[in-house]
Design a protein around this nucleic acid. Structure first.
Lengths: 219, 219
DNA sequence: AGAGCATTGGACAAAAATGTCTAGACGGAA
DNA sequence: TTCCGTCTAGACATTTTTGTCCAATGCTCT
């Protein structure tokens, strides 16, 4: 999607090349990012990108040292795009926590503000690459910190703000991280609070005891 | 992980081949599944599997027509494993809905009952393959139907059971589906109920109005 | 118009991955 | 033991993808 420029075509018999527009480094990056999002990192191939840009692979190696170099720059690009957006939206003023949460949602709804597909694709990529994984983890920490601060602004104490931030953030992102190292007990405990509230049983101490016993039995 | 058999080695100077155990179709399938889970479908390569099994690629083509054929059989295998387990756990008897939800959780905690990594890997795979996507969609429908029936057994009406089933199911699986076609308004509306309950503001009509207006403004 | 740089095409090489074919090893049945 | 069906190694062919090199083209500036 969304790679504007049509490119250098010097077939002698074709168009006289009036609107000749060169393929830029950004063009390569844009197409690469699109393929990363739709097909995964394994499909980000030099020839495929070049074909879509209607140029040979040669010019790729003008802008990038290698395929590996391209992937690295793709990561830099993502880092500069998404995390700062979330932080900004969380910091936006609102009269109530409800309004602030709406602000948070808005961030994810405008592709100009946040590319959800890109975030997803890189999260998937991180599963197979330790380097990428480390950068994702740092980004998540920074983002959750921002959401926590948002809740804290409306009077939630440290613990309450943190739990709400994590659930809100992971509900929205789809909890793709799926941290296999996190003990199941923690996930149950965290989910417990939500379920009790949602099922309208928060006043029922028996149900709370059930869940608590269950979570502790996992230790 | 977990590929027991060591294999045919007929180096004349090595071991006399006493415990000769052949590589079976299941061995190929097991290693392929493991690679699918840890590295994604793109990394499921004939040579890689063969190396891990310590046989040449030749015998692969004895059991499978092609790489494509292997992937197809991997899908069949997954279908037979996971969905039925969820349905069984949801149908298990429990005194209260709280207990039933605990049963549901247990299903995901025992790798013998449900391979979460496999489910995740295939969900990811489905993003790039329409055929796979269709099978995942059918599986999700069947599973949510089972969870809905579970809530219904404890007195929730049709709508309430369905909403709770979806949230419980997707919270647990991590909402990997991330259906891009589902309107954002629907997601907000669905999440709204949760958030209102969780933040303890369900008694606040102003907050409810805020969310409702927001969801409707997305029309 | 000419010089110089940025960019590109196309030829070449090499690596990685799939698939085919054949000879042969192994074990069980005749 | 011999024979046959099952399974495997290794050679060969092909396709896909990456990376290198160099000549040539178009643009910009003079």
């Amino acid at each position: 999607m969304a790679n504007g420029p049509v490119l250098h075509r010097d077939d002698p018999d074709k168009e006289p090349l009036v609107g000749h527009i060169k393929v830029t480094r950004e063009d390569w990056l844009n197409v690469a990012r699109d393929i990363l999002v739709t097909d995964g990192v394994a499909e980000v191939k030099v020839l495929a990108i070049g074909t879509r840009l209607e140029v040979s692979r040669s010019s790729f190696y003008w802008y990038f040292k290698s395929r590996k170099d391209l992937l690295s720059q793709l990561l830099d690009d993502w880092e500069a795009r998404n995390t700062a957006r979330i932080e900004a939206h969380c910091a936006a003023p609102a009269a109530t926590i409800t309004g602030a949460i709406c602000n948070f949602f808005r961030c994810f709804m405008d592709p100009a503000h946040f590319d959800q597909g890109l975030d997803f694709a890189i999260r998937e990529w991180s599963r197979r690459d330790g380097q990428v994984r480390r950068r994702i983890d740092l980004a998540d920490k920074a983002r959750i910190k921002a959401v926590t601060a948002m809740f804290a602004r409306y009077g939630y104490d440290s613990y309450e703000a943190d739990v709400r931030a994590r659930i809100l953030y992971f509900m929205q992102l789809g909890y793709h991280a799926l941290d296999q190292t996190e003990p199941m007990a923690d996930r149950v405990a965290r989910t417990r609070g939500y379920l009790l509230g949602f099922t309208g049983q928060e006043a029922d101490p028996a149900a709370l005891a059930d869940f608590t016993a269950f979570a502790e039995s996992l230790g």
